[in-house]
Design a protein around this nucleic acid. Structure first.
Lengths: 223, 223
DNA sequence: ATTCCGAAACGGTACGTTTCGTATTCGATG
DNA sequence: CATCGAATACGAAACGTACCGTTTCGGAAT
């Protein structure tokens, strides 16, 4: 709710039609300057060192204006980031849903390794502490991407590329968690090759045929 | 360095032998009370709401004493947690290294779902912001566990349970990242079953035999 | 009349530091 | 063995700083 702030006062939406409100309208220019300053400071200092006062100063705005539209720096930062971070890494539509998944993983990896990576890591980390950030990141960042991914996984199931009974949620966690994990921890590089390795491991499995045969029937049945 | 603080002043270590220093020795009782208070407050309020002043008050200690031994709340919290979080989830040693991995994943999942889960999540999140916390968590929490896991993975390779050429680092990320991912995001429950599903997916693969055959030779070669 | 923006000031919290008095140990001296 | 001084630790109090989130006021735009 507060995460989607930055509107709904000078201009109300009633049944889709914009209703002109009385009084001075909100300055879109100030709003833009605030977002600009927020993104800049987010890149320069990171979320932890970000302060409302610094944003106000750089944006040439008043603290009061910031607090009028956002409850705090967490909501403002998520709003600013989610505003500029639109599609970013869409899915393709080749013959194979599995290949589409792989290519999107590679794209996603490039996003995480690039300019937005630090900001994304900071917001995800902050979401551990702040329920509003968690909600915003979940509904506006992760879930939209998961929804797309879920569709692709389900297509793979329908097409017989994935084993029947496979849980799409588990698939999505298994594929994407390692990418974010390396982003957050920074214990290993964020190469595109890593995304492909994870994809390959999850899809084909890493066990040998011998081990696979043994594991699929844990009992010592010969056949 | 500061993470392993809390010693090395009143009692120096010279070539392994403890050398008596002059002056009043450090009070182990105060140290214990500080750790106790830190853990309590960490569980009650979480890392974000933790303050040095609250710790000092509950421990009946002086702020000066805290700042003498730790540079800030991050170092103190990691020290306190890592002090009590010892082995926690060891590996077994059955015939199959893969089974050992699975069982340890289930144990680890129980740890994450339990009393320490919130604290661990907070410290990992903080590690995104604070390089010292990252270093401490990496070298004292993750890496020891990874080292154990790496040995088990290598045993699986030697035993022919894993395909030759499999990168142990990728395996560890693929297996454990999803568990921590759910801990951090909280978008899905932390059931033991999930750990088994991830294990199973990574080991056996989730692709159907038909898709597997196609993916293993991307060219349209018939044979 | 209503709503917005900016400037300034405010009380509050926690930070990290300094100062001071006191307590506890060691080493040296007698 | 007893005592003294140096060194180190602990606690209490106070301090300046940074940023928080809020209030008040004056002016601007519909």
């Amino acid at each position: 709710m507060s995460a989607a702030a930055g509107a709904e006062r000078a201009e109300g939406l009633v049944e889709g039609r914009s209703v002109a409100r009385r009084g001075r309208p909100r300055s879109e220019e100030v709003r833009a300057r605030i977002f600009q300053a927020t993104i800049e400071l987010l890149e320069e200092r990171g979320f932890k060192e970000l302060t409302i006062e610094a944003i106000a100063e750089r944006a040439g705005a008043s603290k009061v204006t910031l607090y009028r539209w956002w409850p705090g720096k967490a909501a403002l930062a998520t709003d600013a980031f989610l505003g500029v971070a639109g599609p970013l890494a869409p899915f393709g539509h080749t013959d194979s849903a599995l290949v589409d998944l792989r290519e999107q993983m590679v794209s996603q990896m490039r996003v995480l390794a690039g300019r937005w990576g630090k900001i994304i890591a900071g917001l995800i980390a902050e979401s551990v502490f702040d329920p509003e950030v968690r909600e915003a990141m979940r509904t506006r960042w992760l879930e939209p991407r998961r929804a797309e991914g879920r569709k692709v996984v389900e297509r793979a199931l329908v097409d017989g590329e994935l084993r029947a009974g496979t849980d799409p949620e588990v698939v999505l966690d298994a594929l994407y968690a390692p990418l974010y994990w390396r982003l957050l921890l920074g214990h290993a590089p964020l190469h595109a090759a890593f995304a492909r390795q994870v994809w390959s491991a999850a899809l084909l499995g890493i066990a040998t045929d011998a081990a696979r045969a043994r594991l699929e029937r844990p009992a010592k049945a010969k056949r």
